[in-house]
Design a protein around this nucleic acid. Structure first.
Length: 129
DNA sequence: TCGATGACGTATC
DNA sequence: AGATACGCCATCG
């Protein structure tokens, strides 16, 4: 798997996340089939331009926290704004620690197939109940 | 080549 | 629940 392909997979999966839901870097990595590449998922999202269609804001850490990305960057703040705009509650603890309740807003499908009900229309699909 | 680092995760304390 | 330790692996200096 090439780095570019990895990025593409990350973006594809991120695009599958329903509005109002969030998932974790690690879970995206798992869906791709590379469970230990959680850090690289974040790395891939870092490459996204500001005008992207990819809902990168719906990907947070497995603990439900929005990573600071370092002081001086407004990424975390924008992420909070975007999530709240989608109806996701973002708790703010002491010092501006942003966290999302995964118990409520978490989205963790077991596989990409489960995540993408209709990816292709050409393939024969067996009816799920 | 090596060591430090990072939009991370899990196990422990 | 919050903090620390350690594992992970590509990228950087």
């Amino acid at each position: 798997m090439d780095a570019a392909e990895f990025h593409a997979e990350v973006y594809r999966i991120a695009a599958l996340i329903p509005v109002g839901k969030v998932t974790s870097y690690g879970h995206v990595a798992k869906l791709i089939g590379m469970p230990n590449y959680s850090r690289h998922v974040g790395q891939a999202l870092k490459f996204l331009p500001e005008d992207t269609d990819v809902p990168w804001q719906r990907v947070i850490s497995s603990s439900g926290a929005i990573s600071s990305r370092g002081p001086g960057t407004d990424g975390a703040r924008r992420q909070r704004e975007a999530l709240e705009a989608e109806g996701v509650e973002v708790s703010e603890g002491r010092g501006g620690e942003l966290k999302v309740d995964l118990r409520t807003y978490g989205w963790f499908p077991a596989s990409i197939e489960a995540a993408a009900p209709e990816e292709d229309d050409e393939e024969d699909e067996n009816d799920a109940q």
